[in-house]
Amino acid sequence: MTANLIEAAQQGDIDAYEQLIAHYGTTVERFAFQCGAQYHDVPDISQEVFIRLYRFLHQFNQERFTTWLYKVTLNATRDHYRKQGVERSKEQKAKEGVSMSHSTGSDYKILVDEQDRELHACIQSLDEKYRYPLVLYYFQDCSYNQIAEVLSLPLATVKIRIHRSKDLLRGLLEKGEVSSHGGA
């Protein structure tokens, strides 16, 4: 079904594209949130993803649509916070200590369970080079090959990063140094 929708959307059928958005929207939003987007920013990022996707839709291979979707979502999430970074003064940032990957109060209304909050916070505190492979592998069920493709990395690097990300995560959880409470 999605193949037909992609084909139709590639020919300019915007209603088909709307159906595609409905179909993939949840995936995009969950992925953005898992990658470090704050929950209240997710709709904006989602909108940016689908506008960007539409712009380059003609280039996409149908069979690899989800790979492109992940790539575009990652870029849109990064760009969203890059833009915020430009707008915020350096002094303000230093004061707030806010980065793209830090969760805020709104995130914790979504994650009710204390253990989930803690793990989510730990994952967000990982550097993106470890966070993204981990998220794709554990939460998006991507194969190593697909992750390698999404992140443009050699397969071995993907495996190493997932391996290391778990080590780092284990260390963070054992130390309990990452705050799982809301507020910037």
Partner: peptide, 11 residues
Amino acid sequence: LEMQANPKEIS
């Protein structure tokens, strides 16, 4: 987690 964005608004 449910989708927050509205497909109709985006289109």
